[in-house]
């Protein structure tokens, strides 16, 4: 069936083409800009790091020291009995760095008063999950601390 008159006036068609073209142009401009801005550098965590035996031995019982696990701060705890435990020092709430409180034997996050027990389990305050814990292997010259041997905190 042929229509007697067009549903679209010439003016509407023209304005539509211009606006359509312009919006395509805007999309073409925005695509590179957005892709450029939202580029994320993926820095993989190392498979394992080594903490020198002298550093490990320097830790007094019921205290902890920090170590670097790639770009992640790690914390190495020596319990009263001399047992070693390694965790990520990043609080699972909002990524602040936790500290060990020898008096209460807890990890404490000062940002929003979050507490984890000495096994890294969240026990008080806002943290939703336990600290990420690392696996450990004793070698002659140091402790090998690895992500794989540990327990995931989130998800």
């Amino acid at each position: 069936m042929r229509l007697r008159e067009s549903l679209l006036s010439r003016r509407k068609f023209f304005i539509g083409s211009v606006l359509g073209g312009l919006s395509m142009l805007v999309a073409y401009v925005l695509n590179p800009v957005v892709r450029f801005l939202f580029h994320r550098e993926k820095i993989p965590l190392p498979g394992a790091v080594k903490v020198a035996m002298s550093d490990v031995e320097a830790i007094a019982p019921n205290s902890a020291r920090y170590f670097e696990y790639g770009h992640l701060p790690g914390i190495l705890l020596k319990t009263e009995r001399g047992e070693l435990r390694a965790f990520s020092a990043k609080c699972t709430h909002l990524d602040c760095t936790v500290q060990y409180e020898p008096e209460s034997r807890k990890f404490y996050c000062a940002c929003h008063k979050g507490y984890f027990d000495d096994k890294g389990v969240n026990i008080a305050g806002p943290p939703p999950s336990p600290l990420l814990s690392f696996g450990m292997e004793r070698q002659e010259d140091g402790m090998i601390i690895s992500y794989q041997g540990g327990r995931k905190s989130k998800g």
Partner: peptide
């Protein structure tokens, strides 16, 4: 390296 960095 950065997407479209060369273009910008």
């Amino acid at each position: 390296k950065i997407p479209y960095g060369w273009l910008i």
